[in-house]
Amino acid sequence: MNTVTAQPAIAVSGLRKSYGEHRVLDGIDLHVPTGTTFALLGPNGAGKTTTVQILSTLIGADDGTLRVAGHDPATEPDAVRAAIGVTGQFSAVDNLLTAEENLLLMADLHHLGRARRRQRAAELLERFELTDAARKVAATFSGGMRRRLDLAMSLVAEPSVIFLDEPTTGLDPRSRRTLWQLIRDLVAGGVTIFLTTQYLEEADQLAERIALLDHGKLVAEGTPSELKRLVPGGHVLLRFAGARDLGDAARLFPDGTADHDALTLQVPSDGGVHSLRALLARLDDASVEVGELSVHTPDLDDVFLSLTGRADNTKVSA
């Protein structure tokens, strides 16, 4: 009976979904171990929200084998619902109720009991910095407050799997950081988080594993550092005033790539201070004058653009 530890929080294979002729999800496989944070990253219209809607029992799949918290969303929706919390892209709060009433509503629907409901609502108001707004109607809330309330409402029953569908879309940087910290605290508490986002920084900041979704297909999957390795490595770009300096520098760094029109030399580098200092020392020793220097470390943007942006040109239409 010790299969529980081995059981993934979310297991998906061959997930397909079409709206009429439009194929939104075209054979997705996902595996999210319990207690980890998984990010589904992709541009608008890639199928992220549809994936969350299917996994959270809101809509049905056309095909595929699904398990969420060990249950099939299609045949045992209530077992899945009892284990999950969902915070959507469009906030799911009752605008006509106050923050506290919204949380009490959730507590009542989870049958928390008379004493526990007030206690749980107060805890969450405190933790999500909504105590001051507890008695204000949600319709008057800022975007950040609304999203915090939305997340707090998903947590009333302490779900083991939490779906966050673009939790910070449309938020200002400060609210975004606040929300990130709240999400990190959740992970520390041992829950599994399934996050969708179009922000690479967000996936990089929060997730242990990232899958890149584009046009309903997964185009890459791995840890943030594995994904970064998929694109050409970091380098230092040196710009020179003249062709003579460029020529001298190119002889110093035979593994560099010279661009004689732009008068630049691209030298592979990890971008660290130590290697930069060594590089500059070599140039100084050879009395080569550098006009401009820039350091480029690969980030997920490179992965994103190289795998989704250019994919449009090379993809054979299905």
């Binding site: 959270s56 809101l58 077992a79 619902r81 969902v86 799911a92 989870h110 998903s154």
Partner: peptide, 13 residues
């Protein structure tokens, strides 16, 4: 039209 209805649909109620 409210998001809260979508939330109700994903709850075991």
């Amino acid at each position: 039209t409210e998001g809260i209805i979508a939330r109700f649909r994903t709850m075991a109620i």
